[in-house]
């Protein structure tokens, strides 16, 4: 459908959101990503039965971890849609981008820069 969405969204392909590890999400923040979101199938329609439910739980877990280290928990989110919902995908991409822009840059990024310059 070639629906427009922000260019700062980049997709990392996994076989199922059930394969998205807490470690993967944290690595994104560690390396300077401002936000991370998982897009899974609608709950109840996972090809692998419950991968998206696990992903939702893991996203929740990452939220807690981020909070603990002083990063806004809402920089990580879980979205669900079906493969036929292009417009919804684009809408979520915009929503997430606007949301992250409102939060501002990932605080770790400053530290990364300092570390790099030091």
């Amino acid at each position: 459908m070639r629906l427009d969405y922000p260019t700062n969204v980049k997709i990392i392909r996994v076989p199922c959101t059930g394969k998205v590890d807490v470690m993967h999400m944290l690595r994104c923040f560690q390396k300077g990503a401002d936000g991370v979101y998982c897009v899974g199938c609608l709950e109840g329609t996972c090809h692998y039965n419950e991968g998206n439910i696990r992903a939702r739980e893991r996203v929740g877990h990452v939220k807690n971890l981020l909070e603990e280290i002083g990063i806004e928990a809402d920089r990580v989110r879980m979205y669900n849609l079906s493969s036929g919902e292009g417009p919804t995908f684009a809408a979520y991409a915009k929503e997430m981008t606007e949301h992250i822009k409102a939060l501002g840059p990932n605080p770790l990024k400053e530290k990364l820069k300092k570390a790099a310059s030091a």
Partner: peptide, 22 residues
């Protein structure tokens, strides 16, 4: 089935999913 759930839950990362290794 290749979903990779086991690879994620393994606390020692001793399970890897081919083509989607950590």
């Amino acid at each position: 089935q290749g979903c990779g759930v086991c690879a994620c839950v393994c606390p020692r990362q001793t399970i890897q999913l081919n083509y989607y290794e950590d």
